[in-house]
């Protein structure tokens, strides 16, 4: 996967980095939604080198998500509505690390605050496509559609948002 901005790397691209020995490597784990339905599988980890941690899970979504054929939520103003659809082959979605719980006993990622419909209505991308800050913002907007955003984060502090910190995200709920 390519990344336009160097704040986000696929861990597979960083040959000199690995998941810390104290933390689980969730690649290959099932992802379950708020209703315990399987919505996909973790294929890769997107990391921020400065923070030295994973910030997104790259999830290969389940067929049921694609078959739902929902239009994506949270279209940016500068994108044409015809362009803002999930096209064939776009079967990956990123999930902020703070919005999931890790069930290490069952090797499962649980997204307590995101249901199947929300996943289906979230803009996806094709593996190998560039990820940029605009796409990240669309994702956060989609997953947080019921939560008013009271903070404006500068670009350099993007990953200080609650969505990247489980403890703060839980408190916010």
């Amino acid at each position: 996967m390519k990344t336009e901005e160097k704040h986000l790397y696929n861990l597979n691209e960083l040959s000199d980095y690995k998941v810390a020995s104290d933390d689980p490597d969730v690649r290959g784990w099932d992802v379950r939604d708020a209703d315990n339905r399987v919505v996909g599988k973790v294929e890769n980890l997107l990391v921020n080198k400065e923070m030295k941690r994973v910030v997104y899970l790259d999830v290969h979504v389940d067929k049921t998500i694609i078959d739902a054929k929902h239009d994506p939520y949270g279209r940016p103003n500068n994108v044409d509505i015809r362009e803002f659809v999930n096209k064939d082959g776009e079967n990956h979605v990123i999930v902020p690390i703070g919005m999931v719980n890790l069930d290490t006993k069952n090797n499962t990622v649980i997204t307590n605050g995101i249901d199947h419909r929300t996943f289906a209505e979230t803009k996806r991308y094709q593996q190998g496509q560039s990820l940029n800050r605009e796409y990240e913002s669309v994702i956060l907007k989609s997953f947080n559609r019921n939560i008013p955003q009271d903070h404006v984060y500068e670009d350099g502090k993007f990953y200080e948002r609650d969505e990247f910190d489980r403890a703060r995200y839980n408190r916010r709920d």
Binding site: L11, L14, S15, D16, Y17, K18, V19, A20, S21, D22, D23, P24, D25, V26, L45, V47, K49, K52, R53, V54, I97, G98, M99, V100, N101, L102, D165, R166
Partner: peptide
């Protein structure tokens, strides 16, 4: 718990 840190390979 949902924090996954990374470290440099030795």
């Amino acid at each position: 718990m949902a924090e996954i840190k990374i470290e440099k390979k030795k």
